Simulated assay, not measured.
Amino acid sequence: MQFHKYQGTGNDFVMIDDRAKVFDETNQALIARLCHRRFGIGADGLILLRNKPDFDFEMVYFNADGRPSSMCGNGGRCTVAFAKFLGLIDSHTRFLAVDGPHDARVDDNGTVHLRMIDVEPAQEAEVGEEDVFLHTGSPHHIHFLDPSESPSLAEFNVFAAGHDIRYDQAYDPAGTNVNFVEVPADPAQPWPVRTYERGVEDETLSCGTGVTAVALAASQRGAASPVRLRTMGGELEVSFEHRPDGGFANVWLSGPAVRVFSGMVA
């Protein structure tokens, strides 16, 4: 079986061209092994690209633990880059993901712009005063760190704090992804973000739906569209429009999506 490895700001994926639909998506142990960083290829998730009537393709996403998951923004951008590599699309595309149809485009410099779903108004989270919740195709808890507090985001224990919130009873039974954000002195500057992802059960270098949620929440703290966000793996940008009801429309996630290598699995 041939595979391709892609990454979007350090969020990495095993990509498989499954237009012939021969991959056994029920084999969670196989998916988990392929994603394992010691015994497999190593990735935050695995993505199948499949044919879909009325669309250019379908994206089928699995977490690193082998289970099907909700939408992955960086994974979506990488799938668009993969489709272009395969010659399925040119610069524009419309594809289907688990949360519905998505439009996307690829610039000449390799930047992939992905239109996300419309997002409902931010909700106050139940686990802290500086916390909000947004669903951007995947569920995201957002915690804003006070710049005067210690430790700083760079020294923050994302694994411990993220694990506790991910499994907080407020989010039973499915859990949530958790984002920790340092508020910049100038909201026009990049907003530093670190994310604990469910399914990976650890911090990842970047999370597309996570930075989307952070950008929308940051807009209520002085940030204007487009918002730049700095992850451990690089910079992303999110643009959006405010809806009259407090929600968000025309949400776009933009950033690089890079093919790292290809290979064969016996």
Rank of each mutant, 00 (worst) to 15 (best):
V106K: 04
S91N: 15
H102K: 14
P53L: 11
R50L: 06
N109E: 05
A83D: 09
I47N: 03
I142Y: 00
E58W: 06
T111G: 03
G87K: 03
S148D: 11
R105A: 03
N177K: 00
V112P: 12
V106T: 14
C72R: 15
G75V: 13
S91T: 15
M71L: 14
T136Q: 01
F159Y: 15
A174L: 04
H113F: 08
R77V: 05
A174V: 11
P139F: 10
L48Q: 07
G75F: 09
A122L: 10
A170L: 01
V80A: 12
G73L: 08
Y167N: 11
P68Q: 10
T79L: 08
C72V: 09
R50Y: 10
K52R: 15
E149S: 15
A174M: 12
R105Y: 10
H141E: 00
C78Q: 08
G162C: 08
H163E: 10
M116K: 09
D99V: 04
M71Q: 11
T136W: 01
V106P: 04
E155F: 05
S148I: 07
N51K: 11
G87P: 07
H135D: 06
E130W: 03
L114R: 10
P53E: 03
P101V: 05
N157S: 13
D54W: 02
F133H: 02
L88S: 12
H140G: 00
E130Q: 14
R105S: 14
A83H: 12
D146S: 12
F159W: 13
D131M: 06
N74V: 15
A97D: 04
Q123H: 05
Q169H: 03
G73V: 06
Y167A: 06
L153Q: 02
P121A: 09
H163S: 14
T79C: 11
N157A: 13
H135E: 02
V132W: 00
V106N: 03
D168C: 04
L153T: 05
S69A: 15
R67G: 11
P121I: 09
E120A: 13
R94L: 12
L114V: 14
F62R: 13
S138E: 04
P139M: 08
T136D: 01
H113E: 13
T136R: 00
V106G: 13
V132A: 00
F55H: 13
A81S: 14
M59Q: 13
H113A: 08
G76N: 12
A154V: 06
I142N: 00
I165G: 02
G66F: 11
L134E: 00
S138K: 04
G87V: 05
F156M: 06
T176A: 00
A154W: 01
I89G: 09
R94T: 09
Y171H: 03
S150T: 15
K52L: 12
N51Q: 06
A104N: 09
V158M: 02
Y61V: 13
A64F: 09
F55G: 03
F95Y: 13
P53Y: 07
K52Q: 15
F57D: 02
E155T: 11
R166E: 15
D146I: 03
L134M: 07
D168P: 06
Y171K: 07
D54K: 15
D131R: 04
P173A: 10
Q169K: 13
D118A: 13
G175L: 01
